[in-house]
Nucleic acid binder design. Structure first.
Lengths: 111, 111
DNA sequence: TGCATACTTCGACGCTTGTCAAATAGTCTA
DNA sequence: TAGACTATTTGACAAGCGTCGAAGTATGCA
């Protein structure tokens, strides 16, 4: 059976906690990655182009989940992460868009 | 004469640095305060309803300025802070609005 | 039952952060 | 010019964070 890991309800999502969760280059990249497709992605470290250990990735997933940014589903030995797009949008309208539209590669260059 | 303290140019404003600067309750409150009126506000600790020391406030002003969120003007013995509304809007459209419209007092309550 | 799989938790490590008191720097005014 | 005023810098401290290796916990499978 699929079960869910504990996460804050929409009303309990705190803006400072959310900003702190996003204020890390690894976590921001994970959120960007998750937001690129609507399907859940695996938690596995091999699936991401980031050079960090499995424990560290696990730690980041937990920070994101406890901040209310992601949902984690447990299915057997595998875990799936999904961005809580609608919840974040209802709590902080426009926030996710403002952060994610800003792609690092497409940043404007000063003349 | 009025002069300006050093600050990053628009193109150099980094999203992770900005998010980190905002991910502190004191600094977020300062930004909220600045955004409520368009005029610059003083740096003086007495002008804010926050129980921190003058050095600590000075430190927070610096973090905000170096992140590119504020401009600081020096006029004699006084210093004035202003939010870089247009610069932030051009760099991260919608970001400021998404964070500031979420007033702590007006947060929706879970049923 | 035994073993591989897929993460997580624990413990430890440096580095960063928020905070304050004390000292410093620049500016106005009497 | 001396002294008051405004804000910053310095130095120090405890707390927190990102990171890893090692150990632990479920789960699936043979």
């Amino acid at each position: 059976m699929t079960r869910f890991l504990p996460q804050p309800s929409v009303g309990d999502i705190d803006i400072v906690t959310v900003l702190h969760a996003l204020a890390d280059p690894v976590r921001l990249e994970l959120i960007r990655d998750l937001s690129r497709n609507t399907d859940p992605k695996t938690c596995a470290v091999d699936a991401y182009d980031i050079e960090i250990s499995a424990p560290t990735l696990s730690h980041h997933w937990r920070v994101l989940r406890e901040a209310g940014l992601t949902t984690t589903m447990v299915d057997g030995r595998k875990r799936w992460v999904e961005i809580r797009r609608d919840d974040i949008e209802s709590r902080f309208p426009g926030l996710l868009g403002a952060i994610l539209t800003q792609d690092p590669a497409s940043a404007p260059v000063e003349p």
